[in-house]
Amino acid sequence: MAAPLIAFRNVSRVYGSGEAEVRALADVSFQIAAGEFVAIMGPSGSGKSTAMNIIGCLDRPTFGEYLFKGIAVQGLGQDARALLRRHALGFVFQGFNLLPRQSALENVELPLIYKGMPGPERRARAREALRKVGLEGREGHDPSQLSGGQQQRVAIARALAGQPTVILADEPTGNLDSARGQEIMQLLQALNRQEGITIVMVTHEDDIARHAKRLMVFTDGRLTRDTAVGERV
């Protein structure tokens, strides 16, 4: 069996020390294979955001091992992790996190700039990504001229443009009404099925989690449930 794409081995994440010590993740182990669509749920403070940050190479475990494509991320510095994010990861946030006063196209180009891709190729790639999320013809619009659903599509296009192995979505529908939320979920499902992109998504809505294939639930820093979606416990 090939090495899993994402592997947590007894991962703990501790903030502060002594009396003020907070254990956000406590001895968590799991694996995610390429092509999966995982929903992570749990109350706030359960450690699900910490787990996402570690998967996204934004944070490192205090103890334990995190292997991404077999690479031990806990030993990597800021720049090495930036390289992993640049080449293998795409982020979609609850608050969209687009650069204001820059067009949709420029926002989608952003990760490609850091890849050092020349301008014409970059713009062609960004246009293609915007087309895939159904925003053809909106390339020149500022985020402020787009609806919430459209802004989130731009954010997905930005994640997509870098041709990532994994897209990490942190409550991608949290700021959208349920109809827009459903559209975004269908888009993510399509990317998962058609492009084979692994998707890990944090949400607290059952309706949204249902679109995933696998559900992980965190409670008090521990992984308390890990089942296929639709399976009853």
């Binding site: 720049d79 994010r85 650069l99």
Partner: peptide, 16 residues
């Protein structure tokens, strides 16, 4: 700050 966060998240290195 937020813009810098976005840039770092999409893979900008410290040097960039």
């Amino acid at each position: 700050t937020r813009e810098i966060g976005i840039r770092l998240a999409v893979g900008a290195s410290e040097g960039q």
